[in-house]
Amino acid sequence: MVEHQDTQGGPVPADELARAWDEVVATARRTVAEGLVVGTSGNVSARVGDTVLVTPTGVPYDRLTPDDAVGVDLDGGQVLGSLRPTSELPMHLAVYRTTGARAVVHTHAVHATAVSTLVRELPLIHYMAAALGGAVRVAPYATYGTAELAEHMLDALTDRTACLLQNHGTMAHGTSLAQAYDRTAQLEWMCRVWLTAASVPGLSPTLLTPEQLAEAGERLRGYGQR
């Protein structure tokens, strides 16, 4: 992989691009292995300087090699590789242009996609919603790969790090691919919990109040090792 010129801070070292591409491919394969994606239905990207490394359209992830790296600039112009980037590139670029995200994961996870067809916002079934910024919104449906879908997604992501896409799937971003993937998995898990609880005949799941979610959010800020 060759060195690539970055408009902000000079050239991006080839080894840095290579490591990031390896992580993009590994994350994409993980989405399939852990059941969040079937075939090539999702996509993954990472930002290195002003270059966005992104999975190509229609290529099974287990076939991708270091020589298959695909990179675009923030305007969508291809600067690396010969394979065409994912058809969902407008959503990825919209996230990078408007947030400090360094990674994006998009899936068609089963439970999350099912929830996206039922409600306009995932009910507050669990306090981990606070880790995503609050109640997870559902972006209204638009045809995949369009600027309209990217606009709907950005609205749903306001003050959030993840959202659902109506009749489509999930979108999550983070400061790393590990974080973006974890947020995706947490969202799918919460959707599964809500669907499971809501399916019990004659009973309705208890939900958290906004105040309870806010309190959990405060505690989560201090969670983990320092």
Rank of each mutant, 00 (worst) to 15 (best):
R120M: 12
V95M: 15
G133F: 08
G222C: 00
T55L: 10
T143Y: 05
N167H: 09
Y144L: 14
D22G: 13
T113M: 11
T158S: 07
V2N: 14
L132Y: 04
G76E: 05
S204N: 02
V38C: 08
T184S: 13
E23V: 04
A114I: 12
G49L: 06
V104Q: 12
A178D: 15
L83N: 12
D62E: 12
P13K: 01
G42W: 07
N167K: 10
G10Q: 00
A114L: 15
T98D: 14
T57K: 11
G134F: 14
E218N: 12
R63P: 06
V48H: 09
T27Q: 01
I125L: 02
Q186W: 09
T170D: 01
Y127G: 12
R137I: 02
T146F: 01
T161M: 00
S176K: 05
R102Y: 07
L83Q: 14
A147Y: 01
E23R: 15
G77T: 14
L207E: 03
A94H: 05
R97N: 11
V54Y: 03
D50G: 13
Q179T: 13
Q186C: 08
P66G: 10
H108T: 13
V25G: 00
P11E: 02
E148Y: 10
Y141P: 09
P210L: 00
P11N: 05
Y127P: 11
G145I: 00
A129Y: 03
A114P: 08
A150T: 04
T196P: 03
R84D: 13
V48P: 13
Q8K: 09
L118D: 07
S199K: 00
L80F: 06
E16I: 13
E215C: 07
A20F: 08
H106M: 14
A150V: 04
Q166S: 15
P85R: 02
S116V: 14
D182A: 15
E215H: 11
V70F: 03
P123K: 03
L122T: 02
T161H: 03
T196Y: 02
C191K: 00
A103S: 10
T27Y: 01
D155Q: 10
T86R: 05
G39P: 06
L124N: 00
P85T: 04
R160I: 03
P210I: 05
T65Q: 15
V59W: 14
L154N: 03
A46G: 09
L93G: 09
Q8W: 14
T7M: 02
T65L: 12
T175D: 10
A198D: 01
E211S: 07
M171R: 08
A129M: 10
P205I: 01
A147M: 00
Q212R: 11
A172G: 09
H111P: 10
T98K: 11
L177V: 13
Y96P: 09
L74P: 14
S45E: 06
T57P: 09
T98S: 15
A26E: 00
V25K: 00
A130R: 06
H152I: 04
Y141M: 11
R84H: 13
G39K: 05
T161N: 02
R84L: 10
T98V: 10
A103I: 07
R160Y: 06
A103T: 11
G35K: 04
V54L: 09
Q186P: 01
A20Y: 14
A129N: 10
L132K: 02
A156P: 01
V48W: 09
R19Q: 15
V104F: 12
T143A: 07
D159R: 08
V105Y: 14
D73R: 06
D22C: 05
A162R: 01
L53Q: 12
A46C: 11
